[in-house]
Write a protein that binds this DNA or RNA. Structure first.
Length: 419
RNA sequence: GAGCCUGUAGCUCAGUUGGUUAGAGCGCCAGGUUGUGGCCCUGGAGGCCGUGGGUUCAAAUCCCAUCAGGCUCCCCA
């Protein structure tokens, strides 16, 4: 295959006609469900200040330490956003959205960027949708966020998923737990994988998430954070679980679930699909009560989720879920000769004004080629215009499915098709 | 960052132990139907066999390098 002069960058893909329709369907469902849950859309810039992401997401995370597309221009440090919770929190603080009163229920859809090695379900530019409830610390908020996420998957038809939840604690319980965990791990340190050894000092909680074979027996017997929660946080977790049960949202507790972003506190959750392969997380989220203060706002509790659209599409394909029908065209005008073509270009607007989708041949193809083209475009009707029709003022209207034709004045055709 | 796999037509892929002008299906264009789509028939266009080098009388085929892509580990959406 001859190499084209230009191609997309590694891990970035074009979404072509024929695929875009599925995105429209997904986006429509997301908008509709978000509206039902009384969430408002927010759109933030693709580029943020690097420092916002570094502080918000956490210096030690993989995302910040090695996956950012960052550059500088003049004095300013830019980064292509790798996720959208920190940007939404920034917008909340910057525009004093708390002054609108109550909680802010916000959702977003858009591209995110992480400089990882691409594989199935992982691209460098990928798309997420997500939602945040800012200003509520009640378990009802945690549960409504999860309910919104689940409701979107349910609408799409993806139901064989597993919701995993955990509580990653608040700073106080985490301090107690971290000490207990390190006390437990210290005698086993030499047996741990290299990467886990590196995490021992700066991020021991992440060792729990390890998928390294040699770590498994050690991790399996490690103390779990849920045994070290402060009373308040333990109660919060208990109430989240109770509410989920009442809503018939099934879940499994995973005491080793630790999400890769630093800002999570208390509730953490992840939605797993068996249809995805290696990258099996459809979406995830949790509570981040410290983030807004961290980036310069007032202490404000918040909870949210983010989910990947590409992974959703993979799951749909695996499950044979059809997201979009083929586009239909209402009318295709087939023309014979120069005069007919100029008649057609002048009459297309009237069809379109009547709310019909309408097109024609621009390149003087044969009638046969035009009919073929009309068929390819899924035209419901064809109007045939030639010398005879122009002189008689009656045009052939062909119903493509029924293969029936009538000759009518244009106004009658318009009326017929608008009916 | 590490491992494994794959590069032949627009797409999906054949291509025997190296051996004439490199094939199929689908798609595209045209004709069969001097003004009618789908089905059918016929024809046509379209390939530096990813790129560079080597072995050989001879390379899509063997060897080396390189580039690109896919999958996996790590991590995440």
């Amino acid at each position: 295959m001859a190499q084209p002069t230009f191609s997309t960058h590694l891990g970035m893909v074009d979404i072509l006609p024929g695929e875009v329709e599925q995105w429209h369907t997904l986006e429509r469902i997301i908008h509709e469900e978000a509206k039902k849950f009384n969430f408002e859309e927010i759109r933030t810039p693709i580029l943020e200040q690097t420092e916002l992401i570094a502080r918000g997401v956490g210096q030690l995370t993989d995302i910040v330490s090695k996956e950012m597309f960052a550059f500088e221009r003049g004095e300013d440090q830019y980064v292509l956003r790798p996720e959208c919770t920190a940007p939404v929190a920034r917008a909340y603080v910057e525009h004093h959205l708390d002054q609108r009163g109550g909680t802010q229920n916000l959702y977003y859809i858009g591209p995110m960027f992480r400089a990882e090695k691409p594989q199935k379900g992982r691209q460098r530019q990928f798309h997420q949708f997500g939602a945040e409830i800012i200003g509520a610390q009640d378990p009802a908020a945690d549960v409504d966020i999860i309910a919104l996420m689940m409701s979107i998957y349910d609408r799409i038809g993806i139901r064989n998923t597993t919701l995993k939840i955990n509580s990653v604690g608040d700073p106080e319980s985490r301090k107690i737990y971290t000490k207990a965990l390190k006390d437990y791990l210290r005698p086993h340190l030499a047996e741990l994988s290299e990467i886990s050894q590196k995490r021992f000092e700066n991020n021991p909680l992440r060792i729990l998430d390890s998928k390294e074979q040699e770590d498994q027996p050690i991790v399996d017997n490690a103390p779990v954070i849920t045994d070290f929660l402060t009373d308040e946080t333990a109660d919060h977790y208990k109430r989240v679980k109770a509410l989920l049960r009442e809503l018939n949202i099934s879940f499994v507790e995973d005491p080793h679930l630790v999400r890769g972003l630093d800002y999570y506190t208390r509730t953490a959750f992840e939605l797993i699909s068996p249809d995805l392969g290696a990258q099996d997380a459809l979406g995830g989220g949790g509570r981040y009560d410290l983030l807004i203060e961290e980036i310069g706002g007032q202490p404000t509790p918040a909870v949210g989720f983010a989910a990947g659209i590409e992974r959703l599409l993979i799951a749909c394909e695996e499950l044979d879920i059809k997201l979009a029908e083929e586009d239909m065209l209402d009318v295709y005008i087939v023309t014979l000769g120069e005069k007919a073509r100029s008649w057609a270009i002048k009459h297309l607007p009237r069809l379109r004004e009547a709310g019909l989708s309408a097109s024609m041949d621009y390149i003087g193809r044969s009638i046969k080629a035009q009919m073929k083209d009309a068929d390819r475009e899924n035209a419901r009707h064809v109007i045939i215009v030639g010398e005879n029709e122009l002189s008689e003022g009656k045009f052939v209207l062909r119903d493509m499915k029924a293969s029936e034709e009538v000759a009518l004045p244009f106004d009658d055709i318009l009326e017929e098709l608008s009916a």
